[in-house]
Design a protein around this nucleic acid. Structure first.
Length: 549
RNA sequence: GCCCCCAUAGCUUAAUGGAUAGAGCAUUGCGUUGCGGACGCAAAGGUUAGAGGUUCGAGUCCUCUUGGGGGCACCA
């Protein structure tokens, strides 16, 4: 199905080009107020500015040129041009939506480009906490949207199985193992203090806490511990509805080779026995950073360069990483290093702001090392997958989330997600009554679409009630929303959209009897289209669409 | 000190530079001889932190101020 918005846009572009105005210079967007119409453009305002004429007059001229389209065009102060679809068109669209089902909203904009989408990638030094979990639903939904837009998407998880933190964790575990055996031990400096480390000793089957078997080294214990947590984190992700296509290990990349490449590019220097990345004439300025430590070990930074180069080598056209705000400073470094090696415009980073948690009216700290954090699993168990995902998807990545866990628990049945799901359950309930009784839904839609809409000459039966019209109008925006998110990555548009659909549906339901009404067929068409769109939206969000509640 | 992000209704928050700043929760009052009342209708609640600037037009862009979060490791 051709997108209505694209069709209008093409016409507008023809007009714009005459005055050397490009597609990016004017907008064509959904109207905020239904009374204005369904789509709106500021083209006349832009044109007027350029040719120094009154916007209103320009708008009127543009409208003349637009004549003949299958929508009503009007001009509004100070010079907006509004497009309004007829009830007949809207109903026709509803029919198409009913036929397209889960294909509705797809577009080919991605042209099969391969995208590597990496998210969550938490340090495996403890359970996934609520802050790190934010990237999960975010990445998962973005992947869904990109797939719907014709991209090939790989969901990737990066496992940090190397480095100082793993060593510290190993030493902390060793301390607890020794203590459990009654041996004297000293808690390592800067070790992981959380109670969960002690519990881990019991959970790790292979980790002996009694008997005579030799105690593994701190290194081996560290390796066992992070394997345990990797499994644990991936398992929590599954509970969130997230499945990764691939897990990449930090230890698997040839960082030494990348370091020598950087040396060859003369963007490194030795200082204090370490090797630093410090390109001259670079915006990084004095913010140089270590690639190889003085003890010969590679830094996370160096490994990360190798890792991202590997993504390029694997044939991806673009890599999108979703990181927490604590990685802010890491971005320019990695980008600079990749640029130095000739890889540009490849990596994009989506940074999300931190989640803080309120419990018993107080903010809970979020240090993994201190162990005073709230786990994702804990919250998931309390509020459920659907509400959990909704909660993280509902907000702009740039906004800090303050999550009062007691409040969420207490009012979980009043969460907006239930409002949306209830709308779906209601739709299904009417469907059941129809299908249980007489014709199948599909038959009815086909009939209405084929006979009544396409061959009717009298449009009088298409005078829609306001509640019918506003629901239908909302439904035609779905492809636009999906396309927009593939460009802006603002997934919260989807939750907002789901709310609007539910809202418009409930109003429709309230004012328009369906079964047995003289206009039953049209109403069923609307109902069915609404159900298809709501299901598609919830599918993208990874939130279940219950048929009853 | 330097860099990044944020500040919108009592609370949580939405709004590719557009028209009367939208929701949910909480508060108040109404509505089922109808297919799900987990609903609908209505009321109340805002000088978009403050001050300047840019322009046809600013919550959105620029500058400054105030207040919060994050970063500035031979951690990841």
């Amino acid at each position: 199905m051709e997108q209505i918005r694209s069709r209008i846009k093409i016409k507008l572009l023809e007009i714009a080009k005459k005055s050397q105005i490009g597609a990016g210079d004017f907008s064509l967007e959904q109207t905020q107020e239904e009374s204005f119409g369904d789509y709106s453009t500021n083209l006349a305002l832009i044109l007027a500015h350029k040719i120094k004429t009154s916007p209103k007059k320009v708008a009127e001229d543009v409208v003349q040129e637009l004549n003949g389209g299958d929508y009503a065009v009007s001009v509004a102060e100070p010079g907006f041009i509004n497009f309004r679809l007829s009830g007949r068109d809207l109903l026709e669209k509803a029919g198409e939506i009913g036929v397209m089902k889960d294909k509705y909203g797809e577009n080919k904009g991605g042209e099969g480009a391969k995208i590597n989408l990496e998210f969550v990638s938490a340090n495996p030094t403890g359970p996934l906490h609520i802050g790190n979990a934010r990237g999960g639903p975010l990445g998962d939904v973005l992947a869904n949207v990109l797939l719907k837009c014709g991209y090939q998407v790989t969901r990737e998880y990066y496992h940090n199985d190397l480095g100082e933190q793993v060593r510290k964790l190993g030493e902390s575990v060793l301390y607890h193992v020794k203590t459990a055996r009654g041996e004297k031990a000293e808690f390592p400096k800067g070790g992981y203090e959380g109670e969960y480390v002690k519990e881990l000793v019991g959970k790790m089957g292979q980790c002996p806490n009694s008997g005579t078997a030799p105690i593994p080294s701190a290194f081996d214990l560290g390796s066992m511990a992070i394997e345990y947590y990797l499994k644990d984190i991936l398992d929590v992700c599954l509970t969130m509805g997230i499945k990764f296509d691939i897990v990449s290990k930090e230890s698997a990349f040839n960082t030494a080779k990348v370091v020598s490449l950087l040396k060859k590019e003369k963007v490194t220097k030795e200082k204090d026995g370490a090797l630093w990345f410090g390109p001259k004439d670079n915006f990084l300025g004095d913010r140089e950073c270590v690639l190889v430590k003085s003890d010969g070990n590679l830094t996370y930074f160096a490994n990360d360069i190798a890792y991202h180069l590997d993504k390029k080598k694997r044939g991806f056209d673009k890599a999108i990483d979703i990181w927490g705000a604590n990685h802010t400073g890491h971005i320019p470094r990695v980008l600079a290093a990749m640029t130095a090696l000739g890889v540009k415009n490849f990596l994009e980073v989506i940074l999300y702001q931190w989640v803080s948690l309120i419990r018993d009216g107080r903010e809970v700290g979020m240090s993994k090392r201190k162990g005073n954090f709230v786990t994702a699993r804990e919250v998931l168990d309390e509020v459920g997958k659907d509400a959990f995902r909704w909660f993280f998807l509902d907000k702009d990545v740039d906004s800090h989330i303050k999550f009062d866990i007691d409040l969420a628990k207490e009012r979980s049945n009043k969460n907006p997600v239930f409002y949306v799901q209830y709308a779906h359950a209601r739709m299904c309930s009417v469907m059941r009554k129809i299908e249980g009784g007489r014709l199948k839904m599909e038959d009815r839609c086909e009939k209405v679409e084929n006979r009544r809409l396409k061959n009717t000459k009298k449009p009088s039966t298409f005078n829609l009630k306001p509640s019918e019209r506003s629901l239908l109008r909302e439904l035609i925006y779905f492809p636009d929303i999906v396309e927009d998110i593939s460009k802006t990555y603002k997934v919260q548009e989807l939750t907002n959209y789901a709310m609007r659909i539910a809202d418009k549906f409930h109003k429709f339901y309230e004012t328009c009897p369906i079964i047995g009404d003289p206009r039953e067929k049209e109403r069923l068409l609307i109902l069915n289209a609404g159900k298809v769109v709501l299901e598609n939206t919830l599918n993208l969000l990874g939130i279940s669409a219950p048929t009853s509640m």
